[in-house]
Design a protein around this nucleic acid. Sequence first.
DNA 1: CTCATGCCCTGCTGGC
DNA 2: TGCCAGCAGGGCATGA
Length: 305
Amino acid sequence: MPELPEVEVVRRGVATHAVDRTVSSVEVLHPRAVRKHGAGADDFSARLAGRRMVAARRRGKYLWLELGDAREEGAARGGIAPPLGPGEALLTHLGMSGQLRVQPEQAPDEKHLRVRLRFDGGGDELRFVDQRTFGGLSLVSLVHADGVPVPAPIAHIAPDPLEPTFDRETVVEAMRARRTGVKRALLDQSLISGVGNIYADEALWRAKLHWARPTATLTRPAVRSLLEAVVDVMHDALRAGGTSFDALYVNVNGESGYFDRSLAVYGQNGRECPECGAAVRRDTFMNRSSYTCPGCQPTPRNAHW
DNA sequence: CTCATGCCCTGCTGGC
DNA sequence: TGCCAGCAGGGCATGA
């Protein structure tokens, strides 16, 4: 499952292989992959063709490729200017199973290939492959939020913990003001973005907090150490190239990360906690799994289920 | 406004 | 061997 560290690995790959290239043609093989693009697949393809990728950026689990000025490029291509101005981007979310792959044009189509981008001059293609179709692409305009250009549809999402604009103390106060459980707050993208189920469980384990602990009962130092744990686990995962349980997460070259070997509790039901040796337990919460060590993260008396 | 819940989607796994 | 329930889960719409 791609979460922030995995998306960052993909961003780096896309920055290397797609930035400074100009899209020559776009093929949408499954309309659901561009469902967020309101004007439809044909419009998506027509507008993206001829645009130059100028930068690869990320907030949380969203990744976008900033596009060069369409009018100049359109003029250069014989006056067939797409009706877009500057300040736009190709926005992507990988969902659960989305992949951006750099592939030679002669490579056979992947079974779940959804969108193909070809570039001027031929060579490698950029492919969006997605088994479960929770992910997708769209063309969006950029707006300024706190002085940072972000895609308009995700302007409501909070900075992620690896961004320079992330203000830890703001998040500490916002979390303590919530009347909910700490994991639900960690997964709330309007408070802090980029934290998914895997890294939420790992950070809670490192901070020795149970997922059902009410945020209102946490001291400021406890929230600070939780946010530090989030940053630490994400940095560790990034160094390992991300977490891959199966072939669903790979980088743009199709390679898996190996952080799954370093997971303390996530997916470790019944295994020994690396800290105290107690058997890791799995609970169902928010219709998904939460893994805890009963020794290191005892259930709080006032649990917020 | 805050907080909680269900749905979208496909493929793999395990029980019978 | 085949069938089906359960599971993976981010983000959004909707309801309380």
